[in-house]
Amino acid sequence: MSALVFDKVRVSFGHGARKFTAVHDVSLRVPAGRSVGLVGESGSGKSTLARAAVGLCEPRSGSIALNGTELVNARGRALALRRRVQMVFQDPSSCLDPRMSVGASLVEAIRAAERRDRRPGTVAGRSAQIAGLLESVQLPSAKAAEYPGALSGGQRQRVAIARALAAEPAFILADEITSALDVSVQGSVMNLLKELQAERGFGLLFISHNLAAVHYLCDDVAVLRTGRLVEAGATADVLHTPKQDYTRELLAAVPRIGEPLFA
């Protein structure tokens, strides 16, 4: 069974007196085909952990492995394997290059995948692929000619997901991808992720501060606090019968519709 495995990962920034450790020896397993929620408040290190997996920052110690292959400082074949881990970001206003059409953004991703797999691509093949990708994120293929400025926030996040899919990922790390969206759009992005996962079988690390979203989408949950893993387990267990005080505190703080905050 393949999996993305974080083992005692530690990430810190700066040196000496200014050293700041964002992630403290966190171990976490994202099995293929499952979705794992990573929850925590700001500064808990949840984004940093994901960024380390795709090489956007470098752990000081520990290992991140995909099917047993080390991804930290990957070169050659390991690097090609790391490209099977893709990330989708929070901010829909900066996730796409404003000067590139949707089609151009997707072509870039398709070509990168072709280079990785050392297979030639054709113009016709790529445009067919673009149509397919857009279809899979439920966007009309005419959107390929549009620029991000003409798209809504939800549509941009869909394109960003399509771009990640172009790399035929084994794992997708979704970093607060619904947080900046209106609630009416959040649901459709979550539905999309769920459908895609069922269809393509990638493993999903869903990073969010929104416990309800994690509850809806994820099989397992890990709770982070100031860079340390507090609790992990099956979603139903962690979110309905939490073992740790911090998780309980976190759950208690979440306002619920119709439940008066103050008696």
Partner: peptide
């Protein structure tokens, strides 16, 4: 973020400079 996304995809440094 779109530059980070391009890096994760494996776009070359030159491509990053010229295209993004």
């Amino acid at each position: 973020d779109f530059v980070a996304a391009a890096r994760v995809l494996g776009v070359s440094r030159a491509g990053m400079l010229l295209r993004h």
